[in-house]
């Protein structure tokens, strides 16, 4: 019996080892620079168009909008280099039903996926505030994903940019 247990343990451990090896090879992207922080999802961040970025991050390009997902940004941004964004989702943060991730996209930026925020129920509220760059007048949108994989999107929000955020 104890031999069996050891064998089982060994199998489990070696299986785990395989997973780690497979995982780490995925994390070394040949395309971007090799110094990416481990765990940083290079594929969706490297995607150059919105559909590809959504496909790589949430595996779909059409998400039903929900009035629960609030995206706030100025209608006119004087400076595209720092556009304040507030995201707030009216959703419980219960241990078995909560917002797990919020994805923020800026439709026509060189790489549309701007950020991913991963929550735990201990956050109490799926809310964040940050500042982002916008290359030009454009739409931004967020998609919230629950821990059960349910997706809901904000209405796209247009921000008029008078001075682009990417040099110039």
């Amino acid at each position: 019996m104890s031999n069996m247990m050891k064998r089982r343990e060994f199998i489990n451990k070696s299986a785990l080892g395989m997973v780690v090896v497979a995982g780490s090879s995925y994390l070394i992207p040949g395309i971007a620079n090799a110094a990416n922080v481990p765990g940083w999802p290079a594929a969706p961040f490297d995607a150059k168009v919105l559909d590809k970025a959504m496909e790589a991050s949430i595996k779909t390009t059409s998400v039903t909008t929900s009035p629960k997902v609030h995206l706030t940004a100025p209608t006119i941004a004087e400076n595209g280099a720092a556009v304040p964004v507030t995201v707030d989702v009216d959703y419980p943060m219960d241990p078995d039903d909560y917002i797990d991730t919020i994805y923020l996209y800026i439709d026509h930026n060189p790489t549309p996926l701007a950020s991913e925020f991963h929550f735990t129920p201990a956050n109490g509220r799926a809310y964040f505030q940050e500042r982002v760059k916008m290359a030009k007048t454009d739409h931004m949108r967020v998609v919230a994903k629950t821990n059960k994989g349910v997706l809901m999107a904000s209405a796209p929000r247009e921000v008029k940019v008078t001075i682009g955020g990417c040099g110039g």
Binding site: T111, F117, A122, N123, F128, E130, V132, K133
Partner: peptide, 23 residues
């Protein structure tokens, strides 16, 4: 204990500001 984690792209502005909530 882990509370949150974020992944950022270059679209986040210089000198990043971040606000969030916790219970």
């Amino acid at each position: 204990k882990p509370l949150s984690h974020l992944d950022w792209s270059t679209a986040v502005s210089a000198n990043p500001y971040l606000a969030f909530k916790m219970r």
